[in-house]
Design a binder for these strands. Sequence first.
RNA 1: GCCCGGGUGGCGGAAUUGGUAGACGCACAGGACUUAAAAUCCUGUGGGAGCCUGCUCCCGUGCCGGUUCGAUUCCGGCCCCGGGCACCA
Length: 852
Amino acid sequence: MKYDHTKIESHWQRLWEEHKNYKAKKDENKEKFYCLEMFPYPSGKIHMGHVRNYAIGDVVARYKMMKGFNVIHPMGWDAFGLPAENAAIKNKIHPAKWTYSNIEFMKEQLKKLGLSYDWDREIATCDPEYYKWEQLVFTKMFEKGLVYNKTSNVNWCNDCKTVLANEQVEEGKCWRCGSDVEIKELDGWFFKISEYAEELLDYTYKLKGWPEKVLTMQRNWIGKSHGARILFPVVGFDTSIEVFTTRPDTVFGATFMLLAPEHPLAKKLIAGTEKEQEGLKFINDILKEDKISRMADDKEKKGFFTGKYAKNPMTNEQIPIYLGNYVLMDYGTGAIMAVPAHDQRDFDFAKAYNLPIRVVIQPEGDNLNAETIEEAYPGDGYLVNSGEFNGLDVETGKKKITEYLKEKNLGEETINFRIKDWGISRQRYWGAPIPVVYCEKCGVVPVKEEELPVKLPLDVEFTGTGNPLETVEEFVNTKCPKCSAPAKRETDTMDTFVESSWYFIRFCSPQCETAPFDKDEANYWMPVDQYIGGVEHAIMHLLYARFYTKILRDLGFINVDEPFQNLLTQGMVCKETYKCPIHGWLFPEQVENGKCSICGSEIEVGRVEKMSKSKNNIVDPDNLIKEYGADTARLFSLFAAPPDRDLEWSDQGVEGCYRFINRIFRLITRNSEICKTKLNGKKEESDITKELEYNLHSTIKKVTGDIETFHLNTAVAACMEFTNNLYQMENKIKMETEKALFAESVKTLLIMLTPFIPHVCEELWKITGNKTFVSDQKWPEYDEKKIVKDTTTIVVQINGKVRANLNLPTDISKEDALTAAKSNEKVQKYINGKRLVKEIFVPNKLISLVIK
RNA sequence: GCCCGGGUGGCGGAAUUGGUAGACGCACAGGACUUAAAAUCCUGUGGGAGCCUGCUCCCGUGCCGGUUCGAUUCCGGCCCCGGGCACCA
């Protein structure tokens, strides 16, 4: 019998679908397990990254099912987004049509992988029945003040008449049309994620099942810092400049101030002075250059003196106010006190503009001199040149100076977060409409619940300029929900990250028609027990989803604090590349004897890079599945590397996995009758039965432990070893008991391999006489007693080097073991004539002798 | 610059709390089967030296040092690679 993967795989996929093996149903009596992989964007077809992601998830889901958990394992589509709209502009296909046909195609591809999804729970986020609820949540958030609109600076392309994301600005130019990008003040909607900064941060210390790497990234992103807000009165103006500093201990050293060019005070300070023209030019230059220079690592400090002074609240000195290119408007207050002696950037600026430097912190046992220091000293020490605060250490100084300023009403202790509110407005068509209406009388009014969803109009023209929604009269012109007067609809749509922030809860009750999701279902299934996806979502998606879950909790929709209990970030799928100095990335077939087949240049030898179209190192899963089958594709992605590490593609590695499946197939088909043996009558013992039992139980133990800890590659290795062992046994088994144990071993092997290569396991399960699904079998238990051997190999070390191996009875006493060791010929050779200094005995492992 | 990962054979990768480094797979070599090849099966495979039979010895987990009977594992100092953040006041 030959292994025909095509036939086998389509056969079992059909049967699973018919029997609904993977349908999830709430059952309070069973322990639930929510296994989730990050849902894909329907870009057109799946890639190897998907295969790997979903293969890992499928192992977890199937394993947990077999372990007796009530498993929910859903799949859906992150269906809104820019590529669909670009396709519409380029190919004159409607984004909806493009998206849904991609979904259809990719769903077929996923089905060919034999993944254990409950397809009845499938959702697409572009479905009005989905985004309707997102709009409802938006209006609830609006009522609670958790979402607001404000005007802020954004990237604007005047040719396309649209806002661009930071990623869409390439060297200061629009990625689509190449014209200069301007900074423009524009109205937009924001989610108040900053209000949840503290809680989001706190929980990063409670998410024990997350990789430390991801948590650190989130902590850095949230960026909490302790410090003080301090007021510096502006001389000759009835106002003060407020700064945030983490070093209130150094206020005495603040010898000048800096404002961000876009600081509201900047223009006011120079208004009507002879510096006005020059100043405005400086501001414009910086603002224009900003986005560009941020990409270049040009760190030159540029400043402009406003001609005005502020009063240092501690020294009462008048210090000059500058505008500075390195001061960011969106961090802190957009203004800083500059302490050149203790901050490197301020130091560089002071040197460039010849500003005074004053040391106010002296390190223990040192004496810094402002005249001679060559860099700022940011470290610890005690205060000097600080009046009554002299002699305090840095920490006490921070406290005392802050207290002093507070008394004078010139400052207070504060906590600053780096995280900014989440701007969710997109001037794009293919997204969920923001459900608000602008009324001349009533202002901003959210759409009423009964009028949701605000459906995306489908009859739209895509010209490539501006937001197509603005051109749809029937959409824009509406009535005010409050006063019924004619009003205009918001034409911005929501960031697609909003959809992916709650899809996992919608999966709990995807057809729910009365709420975003059924509360009981959500409280039963949530949180996700195991979430699996690429590390590229470490901040954005994973932070937004955490935030949105807390919002839903606070709005009373659900009772969980955190959406994802355990997170596995899988590595990338990589492959070697070929780079020609002239023609760039080549396909493998364009390389001849290490030379470019077009121009003959020497190619750069195979750097291993993430698979991508642009690098011409893609492997199409479709071809892989056609040629080797889904089981091989899955097995390779699971065996070639541990899940969290990058996986390097290898054609030979794939062959190896295919060979292994064939090996099992042959072993079992040619022994199919033996595999039906059941032990009737009395059990006999032999060396063979002992070995079979030992291998069986130690493999169960190893594979089970490995899956629990995500060492999936070694779990596969253990199954391979077990298979090799059965090959050895094949010709040795004679007695009925031996045959029965062989049969049991095969049966157990098939069960354990089912999460990895389910199709061939089902087939072989049937061939060995079973009428059930192997997928429905219970995960095997091992018997610790069967893993204990009569004798154990004990190593004898002499002065730390292995000198002999002894086969001794398991659990031998120290005395007996030492006696055995010392009577060993080889050991005697070493210890003869020497003094025995120390004897160490590790039960069942080793004896270590130290001699002199 | 700061914060995470990671450096182990020709390659991908294994090694419980410190206890025989190199599981499993790939590649390679030899053998069996075959008219032959492919496929398959079996055996060997870190490097070096010696007696070249079986074995024995030495060196080996990025580098240097330390702790220990014993270190891929723990500690200190460095080097290299990958990733993230980066004028964050």
